[in-house]
Design a protein around this nucleic acid. Sequence first.
RNA 1: GCGCGGUUAGCUCAGCGGUAGAGCACUUGCUUCACACGCAAGGGGUCGCAGGUUCGAACCCUGCACCGCGCACCA
Length: 1006
Amino acid sequence: MSEISKAYEPQAVEEKWYQFWLDGKFFVADPKSAKPAYSIVIPPPNVTGVLTMGHVLNNTIQDILARKARMDGKEVLWLPGTDHAGIATQTVVERTLKKSGEIKHRDDLGRDKFLERVWQWKEKHGGIIIQQLKKLGASCDWTRERFTMDENYSRCVQKVFVELYKKGLIYRGKRMVNWCPATLTALSDEEVVMKEQRGSLYYFKVEIAEAPGTFLTIATTRPETIPGDTAVAVNPKDPRYAHLIGKHVIRPLPAELPREQKLIPIIGDEHVDFEFGTGVLKVTPAHDKADFEIGTRHHLPTIEVIDARGQMNDAAGADLRGLDRFKARKVAAEKLSELGALEKEEPYTNNVGYSERADVPIEPRLSEQWFLKYPSADKARNCVELGSAAAPAAPVSAPLTGTSATHGVEVGATSTAPGAGALPKMKFHPERWAKVYDHWMGGLQDWCISRQLWWGHRIPVWRNGPEWTGSKRKQSFDLLWKSKDKGIAVKWPTTKTTVSKPAFNVLDSASEIPNQNVEWTTVSVEVAIEAGNEELVDKLEQLGFVQDPDVLDTWFSSWLWPFATMGWPTPTDTLKKFYPTTDLVTGPDIIFFWVARMIMAGYEFMGEMPFKNVYFTGIIRDKQGRKMSKSLGNSPDPLDLIAKFGADALRFGVMRAAPLGQDILFDEQNVELGRNFCNKLWNACRFRQMQGGGDASSPDRDGGVAATYEVQGEIDPKLLTSDDKWILLKLDAAIRELNTAFAEYKFSDATATLYRFFWNEYCDWYVEASKSVFFGNDAAQKANSLAVIDFVLSHTLRLFHPFIPFVSEELWHGMGFSADMPENQGGKTIMFAPWPKPFDNDFKSHFGLSERDEKFIEARNEFIAQGRNLRRNANIPANKKVKFIFKPAGQTSATDVEVLKLLLNAESVEVNPNFQPSKNVLAVRADLGELFLPLEGLIDVEAEKSRLKKEIEKAESEISKVEAKLSNPNFMQKVPANVLDEHKQRLADWQNKLTHAKSALAALES
RNA sequence: GCGCGGUUAGCUCAGCGGUAGAGCACUUGCUUCACACGCAAGGGGUCGCAGGUUCGAACCCUGCACCGCGCACCA
């Protein structure tokens, strides 16, 4: 007998097997393989981040899909990498440098030095999350690890930029943007979250210039922006005010300005809501998005009063100058009060946009930024299956063959969208996210892609400087003209126009000769340049061109992830084999940030969708339902959990708790359950080993667990017990259920099935019943049951492998199954062992598996449960052996009796077809027959009596329910035959139970 | 305001038209020769509320309430 430890010790085996997989290059994807492809790209975590529970959930699912696909015989690419995460990383490094006292501001270091420090930081911390993913067991192809600022990746970003620029989809303009006064950069709309904020609504009056002594009252939440007001707006349909349109009011602030400088017009604009406040709106085009639009419609001037840092500037006037915007709000209100203009101030709650990352209110601000008009938006919008009523196209049950893909349900293009043409469809899981996606796609706004940061992809655009005159100008033009086919795009205005209304030509489009009448020195010429033109860039810079200082939004690189990581723009073997990817697994929180944009980029640059299925995980919360966050301290470190319980335990526990489409309330108990389950599996295998078998002469296997027994090969159908047949049928059912779960991406269903099958069906019933064979003397029978066990375990381990890869690999080797398989199909590693197929009819008839066996064992188990209940009711301690008398209803075998004896913990089970119960004999009856427990005067009769009374009550109640239905003429008339039969059967069953319980009670009372 | 989820046992969830289920927690008994990270037995639910459809509703429809989320936003 080999010595294997009593409890599974994951720490001892996880590292070993991960290294084994790496050494064997089992994760490496071969684009030349003849196998069908399965691919998935990792949502790249922040390069300097650490593993969170969200990553665990996300990556466990990806690993499950990847490992399952390998077992299905696919060539699998799971492509890993990290994201440079512009703001997040820069902020962390900046904060660290400030903390250490090294700098006060990043300007102290300067751009180049600062970037050096970020790269250093990245080198130092960048590997952490990758190492953590390895601890989790992630089977990524690490030879292909990518980073969104790799040289090749950067080339992709620049190429994409230049292409979109050429198409006129990327443009620069002065617009109202979401400005973050903390990080000093513009943000996209998606980076702004609305938060409810308590504040005040201030009512102040302004005098109408043309009618001295008459006033308008305005309600505002932001009195500090009054100095920036350039109009007052009313709704032209508002009878109260319409007649005032065209007149002027005197703006109260800044107080020190002369009256004529504070005259602002009253304008009419439909935007104004009659109902709100007083129906009069102050218009601050420089600091409010809606006001900016009003300003544009009415050609209003803009007055900026708040600077980039959120402080009031000179234009705000003497009272407010230099104050923080929130402080200024109070001061402005006080000032209004002093002036006698403040009528009232009432508490008010409104929604304010916050910078998601810096958690400060954003300041709408006019600034020069780069924007992208989304490409391929129509295709992207229409490719996602919108889960309508026309659902019957989707097959409900899983394919019965284990060889074909059972995930990645593909649905025909035309079933639901007749007008959609030949676009293949992408599926979202759960489907409801498709609506969210569609809605967002329907309201696309141009994307502000520039960030005033240093860490990121610098915008590859050079612009002429002020010294760009005379011969330099001529040289530049010649130079650009010569380079026009080398991945550059040049724009200059065809006429003198304002910057905000560009009328640009691109060098290689229609009109190539610049208009000689243009005042060259006064216009801006832009050159967008792809990577690889360093020489050109040098020359341009000598000629006075300067590169745009801004960097691109991080997502402007992430949106290329599915193909930029595979070698685009070169049509590599990898792209050919693995694009489009099969599945994407991500959180719904980045559906707009990332998923939608990847779909558009996929169509735009690859001409094809980037993935066929998107699985949206839930969000991990703590057990009180709160989001996990560092500040709450409610986010467990997954590495601690792995150290404590093992990676498999963590994976299994999380998957079990994570139903499709629901948020996950995480509790360490989930992981404990996973640990217990792994231990159960371990011990079940240990039990098998202890039974020995064969010639017991096998050498140690290559794994850790010594195997001193022979795997039992052939199962002899003639020697199969009912229990053997039953467990084979249960295995078959489990395989089918798992295939369905995979087809529907229901991983919690899959783990529930595994748990039930292995723990309840295999361990609790099959193994326990089979002990009657193993502890007996029939060697042939014993060998045959061992063969069944080996068959079941070798299948079970494979079913487990995607979920709990380490322990399944350890046991696969330890049990000797690896030695039993061809090298490329599990001989080396369980990773490539074929995914079990459901049993076909030939298999079933060969082994004589039928529903009858299943029914019999279920009846037998029910019988045993009742027998145990008898014991328990009679207060017989679990360890006390007692005598039972068994009165079989039909044929019975010695084996059956042995099993009864074992599972009832009986001293003996006497078979007596003619037994007549007398007083003080407890009895139960089931399909198998009757079981009697003579009490011999020692036991608690009252307990059994009350149990029987309860049972009688229950039976009577059920009977009356069914009888009521059966006597309802409507029911009898309309009910389908099968349901009617069920009801009749149920009635008979309960009547039977009732009769029995009554007679048992009578026996006790006699 | 619009939309999307959710509301089933103490907790977390499954079930989505024909006898209310699982895991955890709880109670009780067991160191039974794989496993106390275990075994066995058990208690516990008018399926959020109100109507409707149906022979029959946790399940379908309508309304309401509460919780969560997303989008939009009125200063």
